[in-house]
Design a protein around this nucleic acid. Structure first.
Length: 551
RNA sequence: GUGCCCGUAGCUCAAUGGAUAGAGCAUCAGCCUUCUAAGCUGAGGGUUACAGGUUCGAGUCCUGUCGGGCAUACCA
């Protein structure tokens, strides 16, 4: 609906002889008396033109020409706002689009023909997924869904490493537990992975091999088994949350090169070297970030000869560019915040357009149980497992809890509250609205032979009461909400929005009899209900939660 | 110490630099012989941590102070 106003305002600006590169902002006023939409363009332009905003707004509305039956009143208010009042019939007619385009309502073609990659989760297979990881997983999945509505061809990618130091520690951890299982007296180092899952893996190895592996120094079997078991558990957990990836990118491939060629890692070093951003000292190879104003240089190749994580990370991003992605979204937790600028700087030096990269950093999740904060660490084995949480509160509530708060806020996951499965849980409010409509439609088809597939929305303009207009009006916001979610990489806005739609539906349901109304009004109200159901479903699809037909 | 995020109702959180700062939970008062009361209506509750600054306008931007989280590795 915001897009509706833009050409008219542009024309008015032109007619008034005003040139500006300011973005025209269309807002929803806080108070209804200020109309359905408003713009502050007069303020923005007034500054440039050094004119009085109110006077300028007056001149603009002289030049605003809307088609008949759309905007019934345009007025200047306050110090220079321009407020638009829509014809209620126009709102109702516009809402017909929901039924016309169905699940494509809210979709747009701004990304058509473009390739996007969303990288998320990317946990190394050192242990089961924790609750903290879940947040980024759901965030990434929702962002991918949002991009798909805009026509992007989206690749959902998981970047992992099964080679580095952490995997070594993992293999050793399994070996220690295995040796203990064989009855040997070994002390388990507290630097290693403490979780029960290590002992479980050791147990399977013991069942398969007995004591045979006890004398073996080679860790590869321990490592391979651990990786296989853990990766499979990670994928199972993700599946439970309807998170799936199209592509698993193994960091280790960046270390390798075909005969006669150099590895992607080495190519990065060479290219940076050519630009004089590489130096070698203290037996290591350094990225000269001090030349970019940073306090310290960053190690790319350790004195051991192994790359540090930054090098493959840069090389990995190079592959994203080489694979031709027009948009690259990276989702990661706040603990990675320091590394991202280095990667970005390196890519700039290598000549890549880093404006194609967008980063969504989610703050941590703290879990509280009975008001007590629980600290989490995978290494110490006291992590709250994502699987346990899903067991207790279900997939829908887990997903919704993760994205109902802004990603920049620390998420306080009240486990007790989430366990409640009562009306406190916001997922029920949304589900209830949807189930209510389904139930109503079922009853309508049984009792009066209502045929929902034949509904076109023709009757909608018959509806004129406030709850009906408010409800229809909120449905028209849906496409704008998708844009807003993408602009800020923030699906949380969708949760808020759907709550508003559900709230307005419940109010409409309360105040407007549907099945008992006169046939024409009855049909129109049923059609409006179908529109609401469609918007709820579309939103649920983006959030990745179910749409129950009864409760 | 330095960098990033956060500080808003009793609690959990919203609010593109816009108009009287909003929801949910909790508290209190109403609404079911009537399509799902997992709902609706209403009330109370605020110096937006604090002090300055920028401008037509600041919860939002800038500076400083206080408080919390994360990071400051030749771990990923």
């Amino acid at each position: 609906m915001r897009a509706f106003f833009l050409p008219f305002i542009n024309n008015a600006l032109q007619s008034a002889g005003i040139e500006t590169d300011k973005e025209i902002q269309i807002e929803k006023p806080t108070d209804k008396k200020f109309g359905d939409f408003s713009t502050n363009i007069a303020f923005l332009v007034a500054k440039e033109a050094k004119r009085n905003p109110r006077e300028l707004a007056g001149q603009l509305i002289e030049n605003l020409r809307f088609p008949a039956g759309t905007v019934v009143k345009t007025e200047v208010a306050g110090p220079g706002f321009i407020n638009f009042h829509l014809d209620p019939a126009f709102i109702m007619l516009s809402a017909q689009a929901v039924l016309e385009v169905g699940e494509a309502f809210g979709s747009y073609d701004s990304g058509t023909g473009q390739k996007a990659i969303v990288e998320y989760v990317s946990a190394n297979p050192t242990g089961p997924l924790t609750i903290g990881r879940g947040r980024g997983g759901v965030l990434g999945d929702c962002l991918a869904n949002l991009l798909e509505t805009q026509g992007y061809t989206v690749t959902r990618e998981y970047y992992f490493n099964d080679a580095g130091r952490q995997m070594q520690i993992l293999a050793e951890s399994v070996r220690y537990r295995y040796l203990q299982r064989c009855g040997l007296e070994v002390t388990f180092p507290d630097t290693h992975y403490q979780g029960d899952y290590i002992a479980d893996i050791a147990e399977t190895l013991f069942i398969e091999h007995g004591n045979d592996l006890a004398s073996r120094e080679d860790l590869s079997l321990f490592k391979e088994t651990a990786e296989r078991v853990i990766f499979s558990s990670i994928r199972k957990t993700l599946e439970r949350l309807s998170i799936s990836h199209d592509s698993f990118f193994n960091e280790h491939t960046l270390y390798q090169a075909p005969e006669g060629e150099v590895s992607p890692n080495q190519k990065v070093i060479d290219a940076l070297d050519e630009q004089s951003f590489i130096d070698r000292y203290d037996n290591a190879t350094w990225f000269l970030t001090t030349k970019l104003g940073q306090e310290k240089d960053k190690v790319l190749i350790k004195s051991s000869g192994d790359p540090s994580y930054r090098l493959p990370d840069i090389a990995y991003h190079v592959t994203k560019f080489k694979r031709g992605f027009d948009l690259m979204v990276n989702v990661f937790g706040a603990d990675h915040i320091d590394e991202y600028p280095d990667v970005q700087e390196a890519l700039k030096i290598l000549g890549y357009d880093t404006t194609k990269i967008r980063v969504a950093i989610n703050q941590f999740v703290t879990t509280t149980v009975g008001g007590q904060t629980v600290k989490m660490s995978t290494r110490k084995g006291n992590a709250d497992l994502l699987d346990d949480l899903i067991d207790e509160v279900g997939a829908d509530a887990t997903r919704l809890f993760f994205i109902m708060r802004s990603k920049d806020s620390h998420l306080n996951f009240d486990v007790e509250l989430a366990k409640k499965q009562s009306k406190d849980n916001p997922v029920f409010y949304l589900h209830y609205a949807h189930a209510r409509i389904c139930s109503l439609v079922r009853m309508a088809s049984q009792e009066i032979g209502f045929n929902e597939s034949a509904a076109t929305g023709e009757g909608l303009p018959l509806l004129t009461s406030e709850p009906e207009i408010d409800l229809a009006s909120s449905l028209l916001d849906y496409p704008d909400v998708i844009q807003s979610c993408l602009r800020f990489l923030e699906p949380q806005k969708m949760v808020e929005y759907l709550h508003t739609v559900a709230e307005r539906y419940h109010k409409f349901y309360q105040e407007c009899p549907i099945l008992k109304a006169d046939p024409e009004i009855r049909a129109a109200r049923l059609e409006l209900s179908l529109c609401v159901r469609q918007v709820l479903r579309n939103g649920f699809t983006i959030l990745g939660i179910s749409a129950p037909e009864s409760m």
